[in-house]
Design a binder for these strands. Structure first.
Lengths: 207, 207
DNA sequence: GTCTATACGCGGATAGAC
DNA sequence: GTCTATCCGCGTATAGAC
């Protein structure tokens, strides 16, 4: 909300560089010298902007996870039928994951390496809103289903699809069009929408 | 196949310890001193068994990814109807992921950090066979669908479900039974089986 | 706000005794 | 096969000049 877009301050430059570096090599795999190098300053200068490496890391996460996931697509809140809202959401999420590799990798790293505090931060700032909205849709699609678990399936499916990318490209049957996020989104939405139609009758419903 | 189960050699001890250490903290996050400490020897002794850290890492992966995934459940190859084979497979995979956290984390790390060679190794030794079998099942369930992509959905769904675990536990609606792999497997199998029934008619089929 | 210079422990790795 | 001792560059971090 504050006025900070005037020009690219050194701090912003650093945070942009660290997002890439940490995404690619992880916290322990990136040195302060690497960071200084990428930002075009000396290591000592980094300590003018951040107390230490761990604070710089936290600042990087706060910067990277700022707003993207709360910019949910407008179709979600429109009057469109549930199929359209759901498909629009999946499409948006798939495009985000396939477009912003840095973002996707940082998410994966936080889930893999984050302590309680970091996972909490990630959950609050990245997944809270879209997860809630997904739960609302799940309740509409499968009124007697377990909305929480079904939402986790949706996130897991998309998240897993992209996490699995390096491996899936080596599997039999791989074609270039499998990398098209629109196509993947369409098929994911199709799978889930049809799969859930029958979930109302499942025995462990509405827990 | 060789006789190596006689007693726990130092080499095996090291590899058991490194599997845990690398799974928890990643390659860059674990030092040779850490490893030596965990194995109860000095750092110098490590170099008697392995040329350097990267060879020790590769050996750890080879050891960890040895046989588990090729021990596919027998139900897969039986005469049972497809629903039962598929559900059995999902159940086996979910149990594996939720039981062996080390294994699951090493998989995630390799996909996130692995270079071409490492991802290739992971794909060949871990995912090749189960992926092939899943494709066979997908062709049976949705004869006109895209068996490769549908198989990726299945793996992504399970993989994503477990990768998402730290976060899902903080989401609204979380209950303890969501951690039960049998329950998750049942619902995943249900979702996929029902979702795929209608996939035969989808427009981008059989590519 | 960024630099040079530097502290100092930890990193991977080796030599050679036992 | 494991040890002690050691090398040396790289790690984070600080002091103090400009």
């Amino acid at each position: 909300m504050s006025v900070e877009s005037a020009q690219s301050s050194t701090r912003d430059t650093i945070l942009r560089e660290t997002a890439t570096l940490f995404a690619m090599d992880g916290y322990a795999g990136v040195s302060m010298r690497d960071i200084a190098n990428a930002a075009g300053i000396t290591p000592a200068a980094l300590y003018h902007h951040f107390r230490d490496k761990s604070e710089l890391y936290r600042a990087t996460m706060a910067h990277a996870f700022g707003s993207k996931m709360s910019d949910l697509p407008t179709v979600l809140f429109g009057e469109a039928p549930i199929e359209e809202r759901f498909t629009g959401f999946i499409s948006w999420f798939c495009n985000l994951m396939s477009t912003d590799v840095i973002y996707a990798r940082l998410m994966q790293r936080e889930m893999l390496d984050g302590d309680d505090e970091r996972v909490h931060f990630l959950t609050e700032n990245v997944f809270r809103e879209p997860f809630k909205q997904t739960m609302v849709m799940m309740e509409e699609i499968a009124p007697n289903g377990d909305a929480h678990q079904l939402s986790v399936f949706v996130f897991g499916l998309i998240f897993g699809y992209y996490a699995f990318t390096p491996t899936r490209r080596l599997q039999p049957g791989y074609k270039l069009e499998h990398d098209d996020p629109e196509r993947a989104a369409r098929n994911i939405a199709h799978l889930v929408l049809n799969g859930l139609k029958s979930f109302s009758a499942v025995e462990n419903a509405a827990q």
